[in-house]
Design a protein around this nucleic acid. Structure first.
Length: 110
DNA sequence: CTCTTGACTGGTT
DNA sequence: GAACCAGCCAAGA
């Protein structure tokens, strides 16, 4: 598929495809888009997505350890964890439990 | 244009 | 496992 338009747009498209109750990492998305060294930009894209497009489930994107490193960028620091818990994801101390099972790798699943 | 910051990652100590 | 370092790159001052 063509991925040459907007890096951000591609990131948003992938995030929208994350199944309910699953989550992925910034690096996984970056790798899928062929920019594995630009994971920080993926994080920035999420930051923009909240302002521009609230339909994007940014709460399903965490760092490679399954830690909710970006929770404070949501409307409230609880938003991210609560949304994930509603979808069946167990979180203890800002970290996703059974991360290996919850992890959704676009490079494998798509 | 330069400098700093940061929702990251991978490797080393 | 924690702490530190080096790449990486967009946005804002």
């Amino acid at each position: 598929m063509p991925l040459d338009k907007d890096f951000y747009t591609n990131v948003f498209d992938v995030v929208k495809l994350i199944p309910k109750g699953r989550a992925t990492s910034y690096g996984a998305i970056a790798k899928y888009l062929g920019a594995s060294r630009s994971s920080r930009v993926v994080g920035w894209a999420m930051n923009q997505s909240i302002k521009n497009d609230s339909t994007i489930p940014a709460h399903r994107v965490v760092n490679r350890l399954g830690v909710l490193s970006g929770k404070i960028h949501f409307q409230t620091p609880n938003t991210m964890q609560e949304k994930l818990e509603v979808e069946g994801v167990v979180i203890v101390k800002d970290q996703i439990q059974k991360w290996k099972e919850v992890f959704w790798d676009p490079d494998v699943e798509l």
